[in-house]
């Protein structure tokens, strides 16, 4: 065999010949022998669309994104979808699988009952561009309006790990915007002009809890980011693929900070007296 053929085997081997050659320690592959899954994928654009059904051969470990890629390569080359990393690290492949906001690259096909059609639709909170792709640029606009990090004057660039543990949780965010998608304030009530959404409350929490950040974003939180619109019903936390405790660790602590400033009568009187 030529040099490359093996490299190819390493590279290219799908089940086939290479699999048959070497016997030992095969994990029961036969159990998942060529079954087919039915995917109903939303096809359409701003002017309308409908679910189209595709039959996709299922292989072990397949995720919904693989199925979409298979459809692209074999049946619908123009099926629009966003993706990058295929490892739940970039937050591109957000969609709604059987009605639940999820990363397609993290949605395993085995999790669905055999024969059950898998419905894949674009995120419902944002205007559709085409098929599974929506226009999420609103989020980038919001991000721009958040007062950026600014170190306190004269602060020392030294702090302990436990000072940043909290903010590091928020900085895990991969900007998949699934939380924005599921948040009913944006989704059902369309208050995008008043509410920044969970993703950006997480971001503000990361800035506010930075040990040496010197900007005060509390008024911004209340009046511009509209934190009061959140009724802490926690859907954002339910869908976050990074397991960020959005409501408990970011939004509620921020709400408490807003209370300190704007709602707590004792603190307000105290500030008025001491002038702080």
């Amino acid at each position: 065999m030529s040099a490359g053929a093996v490299a190819g085997a390493i590279a290219g081997a799908t089940a086939g010949a290479a699999a048959a050659a070497a016997g030992a320690r095969v994990k029961a592959e036969a159990t998942t022998a060529k079954r087919e899954a039915v995917l109903r994928v939303y096809r359409g654009d701003a002017s309308g669309g409908q679910e189209v059904e595709y039959q996709v051969p299922v292989e072990t470990g397949m995720v919904v994104l693989d199925a979409i890629h298979w459809i692209q390569a074999h049946q619908a080359p123009d099926l629009a979808v966003r993706w990058n990393c295929k490892a739940a690290k970039c937050g591109s492949c957000s969609a709604e699988v059987n009605g639940k906001p999820a990363l397609m690259c993290k949605s395993r096909m085995e999790r669905f009952a055999p024969g059950e059609p898998i419905v894949v639709r674009p995120m419902k909170t944002f205007p559709i561009i085409r098929d599974l792709v929506t226009d999420v640029s609103w989020n980038f606009e919001v991000n721009q309006r958040i007062p950026p990090f600014q170190p306190r004057a004269g602060a020392e660039w030294k702090w302990q790990q436990h000072d940043v543990d909290r903010a590091q949780e928020f900085r895990k965010c991969i900007e998949c915007f699934l939380c924005q998608d599921v948040c009913h304030v944006l989704r059902s009530h369309e208050l995008k002009h008043q509410f920044a959404g969970p993703r950006f409350l997480v971001r503000i929490a990361g800035l506010e809890m930075h040990p040496i950040d010197g900007v005060d974003r509390t008024p911004f939180l209340k009046d511009s980011a509209g934190i009061g619109f959140c009724n802490i019903t926690k859907c954002c936390t339910e869908v976050c693929p990074e397991d960020i405790h959005i409501t408990d660790n970011a939004i509620i602590p921020l709400k408490e900070r807003v209370v300190d400033r704007f709602y707590d009568p004792v603190q307000m009187v105290w500030r008025a007296i001491t002038g702080k």
């Binding site: 609103w138 606009e141 950006f200």
Partner: peptide, 13 residues
Amino acid sequence: RPATCTPPGAWRG
């Protein structure tokens, strides 16, 4: 100051 300065309903999904 609204969070986004975008008109209401502009990003309806």
